[in-house]
Each structure stands twice: as structure tokens, then as C-alpha cells.
């Protein structure tokens, strides 16, 4: 019997398409979806149907003037700080590549300091700058001053927030730009200098444009992070989205509904930014793919 079966198998090999395929079925395969449904229902009951969340109140405050004004401040601050931070980042990254040790040292100390101290501390520090320097003046060190201004008039909460967040962002952007520049082949700069470009022009015309695919995607992440980080400025009483909500709930004690209002706006904005970020990333991923293969080059 056994020999007969084997010989038949060899003469007439089984063909996949002629046989019924039986997938592997485990009873446990229903467990994860069941857990998800269970947790989902539990959340629905405890969050959406829980009257303590006061969803109608959330709805009524969502578009109130104070909240929308706070939202505008948050958005404006995010845009301004990201822009300034990116410019600072490029400058610091280029300084990092300088031939002069003092310039490199400055860039290193800058990154070390702003990445090494909490942003919250930095914000409070800028807010209290007047305690350190009652007057700010421009002039020669140890020499005459040309222009003096009272620190308290200059450093408004917005100014303190702007300074703190941009200078901090500059340090993080510097690291991103530095990594981007590092990913461009050194031969590119050499070729640029060989046709008579100065180091700065080679950087601007040849290296930075090619570093962009490596710089822009992480910058999108930074922007999303910055949007949320601006909520820290509420500690220096700048009326951003969070502080506006806090002002309202300090009067009516509706803490949770107003924090929910904030969350709704933050989630909406980060979602929009995430979609944009995804598009940008896909765009640059395409460019990189077509640029990498070097036909005819020996490897």
C-alpha cells in the first residue's frame, strides 16, 4: 500500500491549483479584535456618555472669541518660532563647519546649552530677564553705549516666548541641518570649490539644496512638536490657546471641558500638519530614489 501511494505521487505530482487550500484557523484569533471592541465600548461609555465631561459646554466654548484669539496667538507663535529657529539652525550648522575653532566652539556651546536646559526654565528665564539686566543697551563692551532700553518694556510675554522658543528651536534645527549637510557627499563641495566658488557660495548653491530632502521631513516633526510646545508659554501668562482656556476656567471652574476644547484644537492642527508632513515626506522619498543609482559606476 505504502509503496503504491508513493509511486503514484511521483508519477502524478500534486498541483496547488487543483487542491483546496485550508488556511490555519486558531480559536485565539478572535481575541485581539474582541479586546479592541471591549475597550472601545468602555471608552465610549466612560467618556462620551459621561455627563461630567460636559460635552455641550465644550461645544459652546470651541468657537468663543477668547479661545479663537488664543488659537491665533498659538499659530502665530509657532510659525514665527519655527521660521526663526530654522534660520538660526542653518547659521549654527554652518558655523559648526567653520575652520576657526572659536566659531565651531560657539556653535557647540550654543547647542549644548539650549539642548541641555529645559525649555520651561528657559522661558521663565527670558521672562525674568529684567531681574538680571534692568536695562539693555547696544554699544562697545566696557565702552560707551549707543542705545539703551528698559528691559521690562522690551521683554513682553510675547517677546519672552518668542526668544525662548526660537533660540531653543535653533539648537534642535542646527542638529537637523548638520545631519542633512553631512548626508551630502563631500565631493559636491569640492567640485563646487574647484570651479571657483567660495565655501559659503558652495554651501548655498550646491550643498544646502541637496541636503533639503534630509532636512525638511524632520523639520515637519519639529513643527508639530513646536505647536504643542507653545502651550508652555501659559506659565509666563501669554494668552495662547491653553492660557486663554485657563483664564476662562479660573472664573467658572469648568476645568475639564475647557481643557477638552484645547485638546480638540491641538488635535485638529496636529492632524492637518501630519497630513502635510506625510505628503512632503513622500515627495522627497521619490526624489531620493531616482537620484541614488549611479549607472555605469563601479561599486
Amino acid at each position: 500500500m505504502v509503496t503504491h501511494e508513493t509511486s503514484q505521487d511521483i508519477n502524478d505530482p500534486p498541483r496547488h491549483e487543483h487542491m483546496e487550500v485550508v488556511p490555519r484557523r486558531s480559536v485565539l484569533r478572535f481575541v485581539p479584535p474582541l479586546i479592541v471592541v471591549f475597550v472601545g465600548l468602555a471608552l465610549l461609555q466612560s467618556v462620551v456618555l459621561n455627563p461630567n465631561f460636559e460635552w455641550p459646554l465644550v461645544g459652546s466654548y470651541l468657537f468663543s472669541t477668547a479661545i479663537l484669539e488664543g488659537l491665533a496667538t498659538t499659530l502665530g507663535l509657532t510659525a514665527m518660532c519655527m521660521l526663526t529657529g530654522a534660520v538660526l539652525g542653518i547659521i549654527i550648522a554652518v558655523m559648526h563647519r567653520s575652520e576657526h575653532w572659536l566659531v565651531v566652539g560657539f556653535a557647540k556651546v550654543y547647542i549644548w546649552f539650549f539642548r541641555g536646559t529645559p525649555i520651561l526654565v528657559q522661558l521663565i528665564f527670558w521672562y525674568n530677564l529684567a531681574a538680571l539686566f534692568p536695562n539693555l543697551s547696544i554699544g562697545v563692551p566696557f565702552g560707551p553705549s549707543l542705545f539703551t532700553v528698559n528691559t521690562n518694556t522690551l521683554i513682553t510675554p510675547f517677546m519672552a516666548a518668542f526668544l525662548g522658543l526660537s533660540l531653543n528651536e535653533g539648537a534642535y534645527m542646527a542638529e537637523i541641518v548638520r545631519a542633512g549637510i553631512g548626508s551630502v557627499d563631500t565631493g559636491q563641495e569640492e567640485a563646487a570649490r574647484a570651479i571657483g566658488m567660495t565655501r559659503l557660495r558652495a554651501m548655498r548653491r550646491i550643498v544646502l539644496p541637496q541636503a533639503m530632502p534630509f532636512i525638511i521631513p524632520p523639520t515637519g516633526n519639529e513643527t508639530i512638536g513646536m505647536l504643542k510646545m507653545t502651550s508652555l508659554v501659559s506659565v509666563i501668562s501669554l494668552s495662547d490657546l491653553l492660557y486663554s482656556a485657563q483664564t476662562i476656567y479660573s472664573r467658572n471652574f469648568e476645568v475639564i471641558p475647557l481643557l477638552l476644547v484645547c485638546c480638540c484644537w491641538y488635535l485638529l492642527l496636529t492632524s492637518v500638519l501630519t497630513v502635510i508632513q506625510g505628503r512632503i515626506e513622500r515627495h522627497y522619498a521619490r526624489g531620493r530614489h531616482s537620484a541614488t543609482p549611479q549607472p555605469g559606476e563601479r561599486t
Partner: peptide, 23 residues
């Protein structure tokens, strides 16, 4: 750097790995 760049502008160089500007 700028003065050296001017003298380099008069000397052509071709590299082993071509180093064409990729963008």
C-alpha cells in the same frame, strides 16, 4: 577664501567620482 576661489576658477579639475551636482 574668496581670493583662493578666484585662482581656482582658472584651474579645471576632474574627479574620480565625477562629483556632478546631483540637483
Amino acid at each position: 577664501d574668496a581670493e583662493v576661489a578666484l585662482t581656482r576658477a582658472e584651474i579645471g579639475m576632474v574627479f574620480q567620482r565625477f562629483n556632478l551636482f546631483g540637483h
